[in-house]
Simulated scan of single mutants.
Amino acid sequence: MPSRRPALPPCCHRRRHGRTAGHARDGEVDPASARRVVEEFLAAASSRRTERLVALLTDDATAISDGAGLAEKPLWYDTPQRIAAVVRAGFKPTPAKRRFAGGTPAIHYALVNNAPAILFVIGDQVIGAVTFDITGGKIATVRGIATPTRLVRVGDAWRQHGPDTPLISRW
Results as ranks from 00 to 15, higher is better:
Pro2Thr: 15
Arg4Ile: 07
Pro6Trp: 09
Ala7Gly: 00
Pro9Gln: 13
Pro9Arg: 12
Cys11Phe: 12
Cys11Asp: 06
Cys12Lys: 12
Cys12Arg: 06
His13Thr: 14
Arg14Glu: 14
His17Asn: 01
Gly18Trp: 06
Gly18Thr: 02
Ala21Gln: 11
Gly22Pro: 06
His23Gln: 11
Ala24Glu: 04
Arg25Ala: 10
Arg25Trp: 07
Asp26Val: 04
Gly27Phe: 07
Gly27His: 09
Asp30Cys: 03
Pro31Val: 08
Pro31Arg: 09
Ala32Val: 10
Ser33Trp: 02
Ser33Asn: 08
Ser33Lys: 06
Ala34Glu: 14
Ala34Lys: 05
Arg36Leu: 13
Val37Gln: 02
Val38Met: 06
Val38Ala: 02
Val38Asp: 01
Phe41Gly: 01
Ala43Asn: 08
Ala44Trp: 07
Ala44Pro: 00
Arg48Lys: 10
Glu51Trp: 04
Glu51His: 10
Leu53Lys: 13
Leu53Asp: 01
Leu53Ile: 04
Val54Pro: 03
Val54His: 06
Ala55Tyr: 04
Leu56Pro: 05
Asp60Gly: 01
Thr62Asp: 09
Ala63Thr: 12
Ile64His: 04
Ile64Ser: 12
Ser65Arg: 02
Asp66Lys: 05
Gly69Ser: 11
Gly69Asn: 03
Leu70Glu: 14
Ala71Val: 12
Glu72Val: 05
Pro74Arg: 05
Asp78Glu: 13
Thr79Tyr: 07
Pro80Leu: 12
Pro80Arg: 12
Pro80Phe: 06
Pro80Lys: 07
Gln81Ser: 15
Arg82Lys: 12
Ile83Tyr: 10
Val86Ser: 04
Val86Glu: 15
Val87Phe: 05
Val87Ser: 00
Ala89Tyr: 14
Gly90Ser: 08
Gly90Arg: 12
Phe91Ile: 03
Phe91Lys: 07
Lys92Phe: 12
Pro93Glu: 11
Thr94Asp: 01
Lys97Gln: 09
Arg99Thr: 05
Ala101Lys: 06
Ala101Ile: 08
Gly102Trp: 03
Gly103Gln: 04
Thr104Ala: 03
Thr104Leu: 06
Pro105Glu: 14
His108Cys: 09
His108Ala: 03
His108Pro: 06
Ala110Ile: 08
Leu111Ser: 14
Asn113Gln: 11
Ala115Tyr: 11
Ala115Val: 05
Pro116Ala: 09
Ala117Ser: 15
Ile118Asn: 03
Leu119Thr: 10
Leu119Phe: 09
Phe120Ala: 15
Gly123Gln: 02
Gly123Tyr: 05
Asp124Phe: 02
Val126Gly: 03
Val126Arg: 00
Ala129Thr: 13
Thr131Pro: 03
Thr131Asn: 01
Phe132Leu: 02
Asp133Glu: 14
Asp133Trp: 07
Ile134Pro: 13
Thr135Leu: 05
Gly137Asn: 04
Gly137Ile: 07
Ala140Met: 01
Ala140Phe: 11
Thr141Ser: 10
Val142Ile: 13
Arg143Pro: 00
Gly144His: 08
Ile145Val: 15
Thr147Gln: 15
Thr149Leu: 07
Thr149Ala: 13
Leu151His: 10
Leu151Ala: 02
Leu151Gly: 04
Val152Tyr: 09
Arg153Gln: 15
Arg153Phe: 11
Gly155Trp: 00
Gly155Tyr: 08
Asp156Glu: 14
Ala157Trp: 07
Ala157Lys: 11
Trp158Thr: 05
Arg159Phe: 01
Gln160Thr: 13
Gly162Cys: 08
Pro163Lys: 08
Ile168Val: 11
Ser169Val: 07
Trp171Pro: 01
Trp171Gln: 00
